[in-house]
Design a protein around this nucleic acid. Structure first.
Lengths: 348, 348
DNA sequence: TTGTAGGCGTTATCAG
DNA sequence: CTGATAACGCCTACAA
């Protein structure tokens, strides 16, 4: 089935030059006589010759490949990041290799090994186990081992030596969310957060309490609800719980957009509506926020810019530079339609 | 920064065996004395040795990598397929390499070249230019060239020699949609389709007309609307157009879920609602259908099973078997809440 | 069961 | 500017 593989030597022979010359031509090396260059190119075209990247990588110790780990691209947050990163990597002459780990430590570890075997030149860690606190020991060890061999870039705040951290500013995002709701007159504000062992939960929680305190607002203990899964399911159940309280909140901040949307479904199922009965804020400003009615207010980031920063750090580290060890990416509140002003009278 | 790369020879020396023995141990070759095997494994563990996949691939002509092209993983349809395919590939011992082409012919071609250079053992083509009719010549040539060197699997109906086709049954899906709406009493049924140059549009369109004819239902010319983009934008504008008709349809079938959701937004903006004023059906049954209210009825497929079929075809073709050249995957109508029964009186 | 030798397709080094 | 020649790290006969 397969036609005999043709190599750089075959090209060289037919073009009557040495293999090295062909190699130079293919690499656009300047020091080749135009005449020979043309002769070579003609043969290359004729056979549609493509150099074997494996051999190239082996000999040059240069795979031009970057690996990326994320829990699941089905999540729009990660797919947006990956898609943007892939473009950035391509523009920089690199290939991005994505692996879904479903946040399973064994899978994350297995994939890290695999990527190292494949001679990835850098690793980008995005979500998943990297955000667990405390960090599973074996996972941390593997990351450490990776970081010893190649630049590792964390899209979170992975506290591992020689690992570049480029996390989002969850703390400030939450601060903005709370302040915004307060500015609309809300005082009974709830927080639908994820598992406590997740870093983002911890950061947002801290910001939530501290900002509420700064505003002299009371945090009702029952308003801080842990959802088991970061999806609509989680949001749905969490919101149901909130609505069953004798005195429910008037506004809800969810750990991410999916959760917020789940909360909205619960609200609708109970015959209430957003933002009339409950104001709602999500995180990450994924495109999902535009699919629901009313459009969901959320904390947004520039995915393209974020991707450029991530890939930029990886690429510059590959070329031996030292990127900043920590760069925090700000979030911006993107106000849409899911929150409304509330008046003191309504509070009763 | 990088510790000296240790090779199979270093392991061999320290374990006092030959490199081939180490190689055999790593490959779980049975013919190695347990004693030596252990000795080798100990050294491997000690140095956390991982064989270089590039060298492995080069010498064994075996990259264990499958390439996949899709327009954009941000689209839940593609992300679901990719995610499922990646799992299936991993289970089969392969790595899946994903590339987003944004349906740009140059990118598709460039990525195909790149994947061949990387010695992908099979290519899976999913959406994008593969679905254009007529097929751009240069694109077809590149696919042909790929197919000459390795098995190419199309998740559509790519009419290229030696290219396995595993398309969804759009025709039958549309048939089910129309019949279902008719069974609910609808006669004024509209179709929000995509660009005419896309295969799926053509198939669904044919099915639409033929099924309507079989039901003796009249197709109003203005009810068949072309949307420019396969997303909410497209659906929104298309639906606006339909609602501005003197006698709008009572039911709308959209080319995919995104478009259907866009249509729903238009409906809401006009102060109407689903399914009260308009019944709505989408295609692909992505998880988006569960995020909107009411949940969108859609034509569904089993993503896991589909992925297994795609990867299965690729893997078996890699091992020299001959998968079926064409296998059509059925779609099933997944009834949710976006359609309602309509009564003759209402028709007026 | 194990080791030796040659090759996989490039690139890099170093003469010329 | 160009061409040998030796890596690159592993696999696979083949021989022992």
């Amino acid at each position: 089935m397969t036609q005999k593989k043709i190599t750089i030597y075959d090209i060289a022979k037919e073009a009557q030059v040495s293999a090295s010359t062909v190699s130079r031509v293919l690499d656009n090396h300047p020091s080749v006589k135009p005449e020979k260059r043309e002769r070579v190119m003609k043969v290359v075209k004729k056979y549609q010759f493509r150099p074997n990247a494996l051999a190239k990588g082996l000999s040059s110790a240069h795979s031009r490949m970057i690996g990326m780990l994320c829990p699941d691209v089905c999540n729009p947050f990660f797919s947006s990041i990956f898609s943007a990163c892939e473009q950035a990597a391509f523009a920089a002459g690199y290939t991005l290799m994505l692996n879904n780990t479903f946040a399973q430590p064994e899978k994350e570890i297995a994939y890290m090994h695999k990527l190292m075997e494949q001679q990835a030149e850098s690793l980008i860690l995005c979500g998943g186990v990297a955000d667990w606190r405390p960090l599973p020991e074996e996972y941390a060890n593997t990351v450490r081992q990776c970081a010893q061999n190649l630049p590792v870039v964390s899209a979170g705040a992975l506290p591992v030596e020689r690992c570049y951290q480029i996390p989002l500013d969850h703390y400030d995002g939450m601060r903005q969310a709370v302040n915004y709701l307060a500015s609309l007159g809300h005082t009974r504000i709830a927080f639908l957060h994820g598992l406590r062992c997740i870093l983002q939960t911890q950061e947002k929680m801290r910001a939530f309490y501290e900002t509420m305190a700064a505003l002299k607002l009371h945090v009702h203990k029952e308003y801080v609800v842990e959802v088991m899964t970061f999806d609509e399911q989680g949001g749905y159940h969490g919101m149901m719980q909130l609505m069953s309280l004798p005195k429910p909140p008037t506004a809800v901040i969810a750990i991410n957009d999916m959760t917020a949307i789940g909360a909205q479904q619960a609200i609708l199922h109970k015959g209430y509506s957003v933002p009339r009965d409950f104001s709602l804020i999500g995180f990450d400003n994924t495109y999902l926020t535009y699919l629901v009615q009313p459009h969901l207010t959320s904390l947004s980031l520039d995915y393209q810019a974020y991707a450029r920063t991530l890939i930029g750090a990886a690429v510059s580290a590959i070329s031996g530079e030292q990127p900043k060890p920590l760069e925090v990416i700000p979030l911006t509140l993107h106000v849409k339609e899911s929150c409304r002003r509330i008046f003191p009278l309504e509070e009763k």
